[in-house]
């Protein structure tokens, strides 16, 4: 990256998981199955950047590594290899107050509002605990501070002595957002933050995210498998496939002129309100397993344009135009 440092940048970030055999796997083995220990390359050399004040959408199929990448960026999962830079500084080298400061500045909002809230804590404590512990607010000011944060996300402070189960799904997601906002973050990683909500409630929360961005000058990494939602909210979009970034560009460019064959295949399948009784098409080629991804370009078994080079060589994520990135040999000497 040239120019001013991005808020967040990742360089060749890698996360590998070793899947050891669980009880069910061992029992299945005894019954004659053949379940083996496996290594998953959940995130396989990802280099992206998030600019100040933007919403960067992150899209991809289930298991392609979106959550893993989001959790590493949010600082709650250590990378196996690679670097994460915050304002140009390597976060791995930070210690003490500097490390704590970054931990507060980057907050994560999860898909399941219920599982991520402690059921035995009152809303006022869920929201007030972290700012208190980190000195964002003192004991005397805590009650007013919590009221302010709750109002900010559209919750009535009169309910703050209630427990999470006494709220609806949309309200619980607002509690999760309030908890994240309470420590005055500048960057939010939203992982499928509206996926569990009803459509009418999704609109409420999406609008809230947009208001917060305006008012608090927030930057977002917005992870979702729903392309319509990502198109609605993002300035730029990153597309992942089996652990790697295949395309990254401005939202309009990506949706109007997708470069990568995978992006094109994905966009062709997105259900849209204005496409009626369409003729669906079967998937071409084999759908690979994330445990055993194909060599070269991961997409080659399904790619209509694949050639010999695609089976042998991993395509590089290259800037094909200013601020438009794609990882396909067709942009770079061809597939032959």
């Amino acid at each position: 990256m040239s120019g001013p440092a991005a808020m967040i940048e990742t360089r060749d970030l890698v996360k590998r998981f070793v899947k050891t055999l669980d009880l069910a796997g061992r029992i299945a083995n005894r019954l004659g199955a053949d379940v083996r220990e496996e290594v998953v390359h959940a995130v396989d050399g990802v280099s992206i950047h998030v600019k100040h004040g933007e919403v960067l959408g992150l899209v991809g199929e289930s298991g392609c590594g979106k959550s893993t990448l989001g959790r590493m960026i949010a600082g709650i999962l250590p990378p196996t290899e690679g670097t994460i830079l915050h304002e140009g500084r390597d976060v791995a080298g930070l210690e003490g107050p500097a490390a704590r400061e970054i931990a507060l500045k980057v907050q994560m909002i999860f898909q399941d509002p219920f599982a991520s809230l402690n059921p035995r804590m009152r809303v006022e404590d869920i929201v007030g605990e972290a700012p208190r512990a980190h000195g964002v607010v003192d004991a005397a000011g805590q009650a007013d501070y919590v009221d302010g944060v709750l109002l900010r996300v559209g919750l009535d402070p009169a309910f703050k002595r209630r427990y999470p189960h006494q709220f609806s799904g949309g309200q619980r997601q607002r509690i999760g957002i309030a908890r994240a906002l309470a420590v005055k973050p500048e960057f939010l990683v939203c992982d499928e933050a509206i996926a569990a909500l009803d459509v009418s409630i999704q609109a409420q929360v999406l609008n809230l995210f947009m208001d917060l961005r305006e008012d608090l000058d927030l930057t977002y990494l917005f992870i979702s498998h729903d392309l319509s939602v990502v198109e609605h909210i993002s300035d730029r979009v990153v597309i992942m496939y089996l652990g790697r970034v295949v395309e990254m560009s401005a939202t309009e460019t990506l949706f109007e002129a997708p470069n990568h064959p995978y992006t094109r295949a994905l966009l062709a399948e997105v259900p849209r309100l204005d496409i009626r009784r369409r003729d669906y098409e079967p998937v071409r080629g084999e759908i690979p397993s994330p445990l055993n991804p194909p060599p070269g370009c991961h997409f080659h078994p399904r790619c209509p344009l694949a050639g010999p080079r695609c089976r042998a060589e991993v395509p590089r994520l290259a800037e094909i135009e200013p601020d438009r990135w794609s990882a396909c040999h067709l942009n770079d000497g061809g597939v032959g």
Binding site: E61, S62, H225, L227, A265, L266, E269, V270, P271, Y280, E281, P282, V283, I287
Partner: peptide, 13 residues
Amino acid sequence: ALDVTIQGQILFE
């Protein structure tokens, strides 16, 4: 819970 491409396949069937 499925991806759009797999969803397309199921809807096709």
